[in-house]
Amino acid sequence: MHIIVPIKQVPETSNVKMDPVTGTMIRAGVGTVVNPLDLFAIETAVRLKEAHGGRITTLTMGPRGADKALREAMAMGCDDGVLISDRAFAGSDSWATSYTLSQAIRKLGDFDLIVAGERATDGDTGQVGPGIAAWLDLPLATYVAAITRVEPARGLTVERLVEEGYQVVDLPFPALITVVKEVAAPRLPTLRGKKRAKAAEIPLFTAADLDLEPSYLGLKGSPTKVVKVATPKVTRGGTLVRALDEDAVADAVDQLLAFLDARDLLPTGGRA
């Protein structure tokens, strides 16, 4: 099996600091990591390879330094990494990103399965996975929580975590799935994996290396434009009640019930 795992390098969100004046993210000094939700996709691919053989190619679009994310994925068990980087790609929205990634995937040749994370923790759209499936006309299953059947060269059965339960879906290869956390707990990279990843050659695809429609690229090729960025107010100016002994607890619960009642949030019928 040839499995492709598109990943994204994102800021470490636990350290996100916002500039209170401009309302933009302060990127200086903020570390980058592999999008945490992509780790589940990497793990899924590695397990499929362990069970059925084959190879895994991970790819990312980003600045030149994004090879760091690819090397982390390779340390977990991906065989090859490809970096897609060019100033022409800067400012891409999910439409333009999914186009560029699709053209890079075409260049990689035949594959059986693309496994992607559900969404990235910075942009938070979840639109690139389904977008790639649309560009490449691949059968698609999103929110995959389990893979229950794999028949190499034929297809797979997955369970999608949706609002009503786990939807069971059959797909033929080649296909694209996006996975959620429940699918598999990511392994830690091994020392051997790290060494191999550090030494690996990572091919670079620039705009010139791909068959691209120039008007589909980057900020200019993105249908959506950001008009304004604002920082929402963090606090709601709420009430904080201390309830450090039994009487105070009863009193605090009284106040809470009155508060909920005033907002019409208690079941109708009874009155305390």
Binding site: S94, W95, D124, Q127, V128, P130, G131, A134, L140, P223
Partner: peptide
């Protein structure tokens, strides 16, 4: 929803439309 967030990006690509999540 799981349906909207799957269907809309697929359609947006094919319709060359802008989509906000």
């Amino acid at each position: 929803t799981s349906t909207g967030r799957t269907l809309m990006p697929h359609v947006a690509v094919r319709s060359h439309a802008g989509l906000t999540a």
